[in-house]
Design a protein around this nucleic acid. Structure first.
Length: 335
DNA sequence: ACCTGTCAAGTCTGG
DNA sequence: CCAGACTTGACAGGT
């Protein structure tokens, strides 16, 4: 089983390379020249896209093929006070440059809209804002010229006292989305509300690929072991929506998220690095029936954690534990 | 250069 | 009905 590792949004290794610079609404409003403010926002966006490209080049130089783009590329993009602002035309070149680089090097990129995007909500205004946010993420992917294999990962959302009803509402709201939004979604189990088997059920109902977060599964489960759900989770990556735009002869491997608990007293928080042994235990369990999987590392140390994990895996490989290090960010795992 | 409170947004809990 | 927690990188304003 080929395992590729990736990380989220920012580097702890490359200095001065934030892709998430922003401006607060408070300081935007303080400017007496609104046009100048919008130009400033566009300039920040350009810096963010430029730094994203720098990170992608750093990734390629380190063999890292999997990366989560930050949702904050364009500051205040979906803010209610800036609905008349559309910076995509003036940022077209920068977006295309990022997208071209992604395609040229066969990178897998994704977004993760934050927890304000809640399709299970009963509140119409929250739903409107959530759909606007999803549309914004799709607009960015389209501006990059990326196919539907570049997706936004979201959680089911709140339970509102009745999880089955909330799940049904999520599904109902999903069916109202434009196809271009539907085909660019993945669903992830969360650490508090919708656990892995509940998320899997919704994924199967809607034909959406599911991202298994094994840390969330560890702290929010129904007594099952994570690999027990894997056969069905893996199948969700074969659905028509999941394989949209996958070229003949190519594939879109299932994706999992991994992080390690910060401490026994704070088990839900993310530690700086990733513990290799529990991760390896999971990977070995699924290796026999999984040709390839992509692992998104969600650790405080970001790419630093990825490099640390690779060092640890290298040592385990030398000790002869069925691991072969393929390059700087991928390994082969024997069942 | 460094520190601290704040940030547009949602949901849940407890009072 | 409302305040605070949750969680996180970065701003903004201070020293």
């Amino acid at each position: 089983m080929i395992v590729r590792f990736g990380y989220v949004a920012m580097s702890t290794v490359i200095p001065d390379c934030s892709p998430s610079k922003t401006m607060t609404m408070a300081s935007f409003k303080k400017l007496d020249d609104r046009e100048a403010g919008l130009r400033r926002l566009a300039a920040i966006s350009r810096t963010n896209l430029h730094n994203t490209l720098r990170l992608l080049k750093h990734n390629v130089g380190s063999d890292i093929k999997v990366y989560r783009l930050t949702s904050k590329l364009i500051p205040l993009a979906t803010h209610p006070d800036l609905l008349d602002w559309n910076p995509f035309a003036e940022l077209a070149g920068e977006f295309a440059e990022v997208g071209d680089y992604v395609k040229k090097h066969g990178l897998r990129v994704s977004f993760h809209p934050d927890h304000f995007t809640v399709l299970s909500t009963p509140r119409p205004e929250v739903l409107v804002n959530s759909v606007r946010d999803l549309q914004h993420h799709v607009d960015m992917l389209k501006a990059m010229g990326l196919p539907a294999t570049a997706k936004s990962n979201i959680h089911i959302g709140g339970a509102y006292g009745d999880k089955p009803v909330a799940a049904a509402r999520f599904c109902e709201h999903f069916t109202l989305l434009k196809p271009e939004l539907q085909e660019r979604l993945t669903l992830e189990n969360d650490d508090k509300t919708f656990n892995a088997s509940e998320t899997l059920e919704v994924s199967r109902r809607l034909g959406l690929p599911m991202v298994l977060d094994i840390h969330h599964q560890w702290v929010n489960n129904e007594g099952e072991l994570p690999w027990e759900l894997w056969p069905e989770i893996q199948k969700t990556w074969q659905s028509p929506l999941a394989v949209k735009d996958v070229l003949p002869g190519e594939s879109l491997p299932p994706k999992i998220h991994v992080s390690s608990p910060r401490s026994p007293s704070d088990p839900r928080s993310h530690a700086d690095g990733v513990e290799p042994v529990p991760l390896l235990a999971f990977l070995k369990r699924i290796a026999a029936d999984t040709p390839a999987v992509d692992v998104m590392i969600e650790a405080k140390a970001k790419d630093g954690a990825l490099f640390g994990l690779m060092e640890a895996l290298k040592e385990l490989a030398e000790a002869g534990s069925g691991i072969t290090v393929l390059d700087g960010a991928s390994v082969n795992i024997e069942p």
